[in-house]
């Protein structure tokens, strides 16, 4: 067996194996990240849904009727007459 040549082939083999392992690991990494992306998209979807619900709730709470009713009944507020108004 010719020594130098054999060692060279051996070194090549090691490099090939190392890069092969990296290829395998990286392609799995791609899949893992893809799954992460999917999860993030699901979260986004859920947050959008949550946002739409909160939007509705706020709009119900802050409805003009509601604010006016609370102002007049609970806070005893009233519109001033024209005479009472102060001109700046």
């Amino acid at each position: 067996m010719k020594g130098a040549q054999s060692w060279f082939i051996l070194a090549l083999l090691v490099v090939v194996v190392a890069s092969g392992v990296q290829v395998a690991l990286k392609s799995h990494e791609v899949r893992r990240l893809h799954a992460e992306l999917q999860a993030a998209q699901r979260t986004q979807d859920e947050l959008l849904a949550e946002y739409s619900r909160l939007l509705l709730e706020r709009s119900t709470q802050a409805a003009f009727h509601n604010v006016e009713r609370i102002a007049e009944t609970e806070l005893s507020m009233q519109f001033p007459d024209a005479v009472e108004r102060l001109e700046p």
Partner: peptide, 22 residues
């Protein structure tokens, strides 16, 4: 003999890496 053995062994490492990573 030696290189066919080493190639099988090397292939083994790569394939174990691929098959086990998940």
């Amino acid at each position: 003999l030696v290189f066919s053995w080493l190639m099988i062994l090397g292939l083994g490492i790569v394939m174990v890496a691929s098959a086990s990573v998940a």
